[in-house]
């Protein structure tokens, strides 16, 4: 049995990660689940949340994914993420500032489509902050 998971993180724009890792913890829509080598084949939807990549017993990288799909087949794990950001690239102050801006956008929006759009952005930012 393989002792590594062939992990791929793909967004519509590009292939983000393709690496062999020890374990990945995914924010499944029915609850978080970890994928180790030899995991049973699964196709699952993801909710917005943090995706954690483990090297040995430690988390080596964390990503925010805004929903998507995961497929486990054999020793391979493929995550189709709608949007993903490396959490290491984010800083809390900047994010809070963005949330504040988004809140103002929602308050200032003159018609429904603009408000919906701003609200959507705000929700997403709040989710990102929650995973940080």
């Amino acid at each position: 049995m393989a002792d590594k998971v062939a992990f791929e993180l793909v967004s519509p724009e590009r292939l983000l990660i393709s690496a062999d890792v020890d374990m990945v913890v995914l924010p499944g829509s029915e609850g978080d689940f970890g994928v180790l080598p030899g995991h049973a084949p699964v196709i699952s939807t993801l909710r917005p949340g943090a995706l954690e990549i483990y090297e040995g017993d430690n988390v080596s990288e964390r990503y925010f994914v805004a929903g998507g799909f995961a497929e486990v087949a054999g020793a391979r794990l493929t995550v189709l993420a709608e949007q993903s950001i490396a959490l290491a690239d984010l800083d809390r102050a900047n994010l809070e500032q963005q949330i504040q801006d988004a809140q103002e956008d929602v308050a200032d929006a003159k018609d429904d489509p603009t408000r919906d759009k701003a609200q959507e952005r705000l929700d997403q930012l709040t989710e990102i902050l929650a995973t940080l």
């Binding site: 049973a40 084949p41 699964v42 196709i43 699952s44 939807t45 799909f69 087949a73 054999g74 709608e82």
Partner: peptide, 24 residues
């Protein structure tokens, strides 16, 4: 993909995943 005889598990069930997957 050779699943080694096992079938995919779906989480949630197939139709729900499809419902999200198809528009995507």
């Amino acid at each position: 993909v050779d699943l080694g005889g096992a079938a995919y598990e779906y989480e949630p069930d197939e139709s729900e995943i499809l419902e999200e997957l198809l528009p995507r």
